[in-house]
């Protein structure tokens, strides 16, 4: 069981790493926020899933689930707010022609 949990946590860390690379490599606010949302949706999802599995059935499991549900509700709101602010300030999104 703990090996499966370890696997899930490693997958989560992989996505966190990819998101960090994405924030550094991508050209503008809009595309970078895509990379950031990868952190919350998949990175945190797999890490917390692994922790929940490792924890086994206890009250801590429910606490982890509460954190997971809060992340799933809050993450879209935050990335939407960031991108909308950039959009309303008139930032020009990077497009293929700019390359």
């Amino acid at each position: 069981m703990s090996w499966v949990a370890l696997g899930l946590i490693l997958v989560g860390l992989f996505f966190l790493f990819v998101a960090a690379v994405g924030v550094l490599r991508l050209p503008d606010v809009f595309t970078r926020s895509h990379a950031v949302s990868l952190t919350d949706s998949l990175g945190a999802f797999f890490v917390l899933g692994g922790l929940a599995l490792y924890q086994g059935f206890s009250t801590n499991l429910f606490k982890i689930l509460i954190v997971l549900v809060l992340l799933l509700l809050l993450n879209p709101v935050i990335s939407h707010a960031t991108v909308r602010a950039a959009f309303r300030c008139g930032l020009k999104p990077w497009s293929k022609e700019d390359a």
């Binding site: 926020s33 895509h34 949302s37 990335s79």
Partner: peptide, 15 residues
Amino acid sequence: LGNSITLTPGTITVE
């Protein structure tokens, strides 16, 4: 719908 779109990596609802 808006939340699901934003939650899916690669798409973000802006307005």
